[in-house]
Write a protein that binds this DNA or RNA. Structure first.
Length: 586
RNA sequence: GCGGCGGUCGUCUAGCCUGGACUAGGACGCCGGCCUGCCAAGCCGGAGGUCCCGGGUUCAAAUCCCGGCCGCCGCACCA
């Protein structure tokens, strides 16, 4: 059982991961570098299977509204200025020169002096600290200059240039920047989800907890664009929600937290959306998908909940955020995904910084004819009377509301614009008909975002069991890195020959499978149990007589006999259709 | 970054306090052979160690001292 604070199990899982080749610290022969991990042969395959399961849930099942792209890891600084990462991903830090403790300079100034310091330059903050003789709040020592620490990795683009580039801290900006093009190739339809799986880098100050907090890792992200005025997008969301049935989510709301609660409550997805617990419907839908996905990794419902972030805990771009937490050994609750309502923040920012129009056009069902009053002035008179000022006056007149102009003309017989008096007989108010076919707007975004390496750990942690003093990794069959093992009962030439043929047959059918004839049969079962091979096939003396072999279930250790000729199909059904062993026996 | 603790074959570990006889021991794992009729059986043989790195003290350092790196815990930090 997985219990928070189960240190022993954590050690065992990490030891297994290293010993059998799931993952280990990078650059080991040079002493290692904190925050970097290699994936080993089994780790790569497990990760691949987890990612493909993610694609099943987040892309394939919604393929009518979700597409996947791939964008570069390195981006020009402009992109990260626009995204707000250069400003917000950078913390102003002061260090105590005596005890070495570090503090957020702006927080310290606000807390101790009551001066708003957010957004000030490091120099300005240093000045404030000096003027008020602010000292270390812990030991009273003197403070250093204020420095900026940025979590973005910096590089240059091209040789010998000042052209600064950054390694992306999330894949999301790739989707925002490419939105217009993807929207085009997706036939200009909303809602539109753009997914990406890729590596990101964050220069963490002090990464720890092994593979749980890395400086470089893989993110599986979805930016889901929708119309904020019609979030249900006609029937699209309704249909998708309908297919979920009565999926329940465990949620600890910010509201509940502020009331001092720390236990999540259960909500139906629709209920959570309709009651406004989740402020935008699509965020709720993707949380339900996230729930199902993590369940498929072998995590039980009660070992998972969604934790709403308090306003001050949220990222700069988010209007509402939920973290999906999973219970793991030692660390307790671990964040495996974040679900953020990013509103139109990112697209607006990129519009501003790029100068491109990233809005989408929404046609009205029927074009609307609106009547609009406009102010007309006799242009000849205006030009001759005011000469060079005429153009400015004309522009100023256009800004005026026609109704109020009409009113003032009626009252006074003239209007004044920019000091120019225009009599009523030079002004005409006319009513014009205008046809409105639709409008442009900036889509809003709901974003589910997963840390893949964390999922890898979570999967191993929840699969780890012991039986009779041996390790049995009860990985869900679909994501097991090796699907089957083939053994001759003993190393008898006749059995070996048949076993190797059976093994090749599985390989030809596309399975990852191992063959082993070393040591006792029990030892071989143990070896493959430890890396979570779901099924073992044993060729024995009965095989010589009737052409049957045994299938042994990793989780129950039970065996059934099947015909050798049915092997590939039986394995396929066992792995991908989750058919029980008993049902495979003829 | 600060403080505490730690780092020895692939893995887990003994040895460190009290320096020498340590050619660094064990278990598991791994490789070869034998054996083996279903759950880490047995026998024979074998490979495998920069004792984290660098420097210092000493006739002599895995062992003592200093610095660095890495890990864990606490603090701080953390979209």
């Amino acid at each position: 059982m997985s219990v928070a604070g189960d240190v022993d199990k954590y050690e065992k899982v990490m030891e297994l991961a290293k010993r059998r080749g799931f993952f280990w610290p990078s650059y080991e022969i040079y002493g290692g570098v904190a925050g970097f991990y290699d994936l080993g042969p089994l780790g790569v395959r497990l990760k691949e299977n987890i990612v493909s399961l993610w694609r099943e849930h987040f892309i394939k099942r919604q393929q009518h509204v979700v597409v996947e792209i791939e964008t570069p890891i390195i981006g020009p600084s402009r992109v990260y200025e626009a995204s707000g990462h250069i400003e917000h991903f950078t913390d102003p830090i002061v260090e105590c020169l005596k005890c070495g403790r570090k503090f957020r300079a702006d927080h310290l100034i606000e807390e101790k002096l009551g001066i708003k310091a957010e957004g000030l330059t490091p120099e300005e903050m240093t000045k404030i600290i000096r003027e008020h003789d602010l000292r270390c709040p812990v030991c009273g020592g003197p403070l250093s200059e204020v420095r900026r620490f940025n979590l973005l990795f910096k590089t240059t683009i091209g040789p010998y240039t000042q052209n600064v580039g950054y390694l992306r801290p999330e894949t999301a900006q790739g989707m925002f920047v490419a939105f217009k093009r993807v929207y085009e190739v997706s036939r200009q339809r909303l809602p539109l989800g753009i997914a990406q799986v890729g590596r990101v880098a964050r220069n963490e100050i002090s990464p720890r907890q092994g593979i749980m907090r890395l400086r470089e890792f893989t993110i599986a992200e979805l930016e889901f664009f929708f119309d904020p005025e019609d979030p249900w997008q006609g029937g699209v969301l309704d249909e998708l929600l309908g297919r979920l049935g009565d999926t329940k989510l465990r949620i600890l709301t910010a509201d509940a937290k502020m009331r001092g609660k720390d236990k999540p409550e259960e909500y139906g997805v629709r209920e959570a959306i309709e009651e406004g617990v989740i402020t935008t419907p699509w965020l709720g839908y993707w949380m339900a998908i996230a729930r199902d996905f993590v369940l498929d990794l072998g995590v039980s419902y009660s070992d998972m909940y969604f934790d709403e972030k308090l306003p001050e805990e949220r990222a700069h771009y988010a209007a509402q955020t939920f973290d999906q937490l999973v219970r793991v050994s030692r660390l307790g609750w671990l964040e495996v995904s974040g679900h953020a309502y990013r509103t139109d923040y990112d697209l607006s920012r990129h519009m501003k910084y790029s100068g491109q129009d990233l809005r989408v056009f929404k046609p009205l069902k029927e074009p609307k004819i609106v009547e609009k009053k406009i102010v007309l002035v006799d242009p000849r008179w205006l030009g001759q009377t005011f000469r060079k000022k005429a153009k400015d006056i004309m522009n100023a007149l256009r800004e005026l509301d026609a109704e109020s102009v009409e009113k003032r003309l009626a009252e006074k017989g003239y209007i004044e614009v920019l000091g120019a008096r225009i009599p009523a007989d030079k002004v005409k108010i006319v009513t014009k008909k205008e046809k409105i076919t639709g409008k442009k707007f900036i889509p809003h975004v709901a974003e589910p975002s997963f840390g893949v390496e964390r999922l890898l750990f979570v999967t191993l942690d929840h699969a780890y069991t012991e039986r009779d003093g041996r390790v049995v990794l009860k990985l869900p069959r679909r994501i097991a890195p090796v699907k089957a093992a083939v053994f001759p009962l003993v190393r008898d030439e006749r059995l070996v020959k048949i076993a190797r043929e059976a093994w090749w047959r599985l390989l030809d059918a596309g399975f990852y499978a191992v063959y082993d004839d070393d040591g006792s049969i029990g030892r071989r079962y143990a070896r493959v149990d430890e890396i979570g091979v779901p099924v073992a096939i044993t060729v024995d003396y009965q095989t010589l007589e009737d052409g049957t072999v045994t299938l042994r279930d990793r989780d129950t250790w039970k065996q059934v006999r099947i015909n050798l000729s049915d092997l590939v199909d039986a394995v396929r059904r066992f792995i991908y259709e989750n058919t029980s062993l008993e049902k495979l026996a003829p």
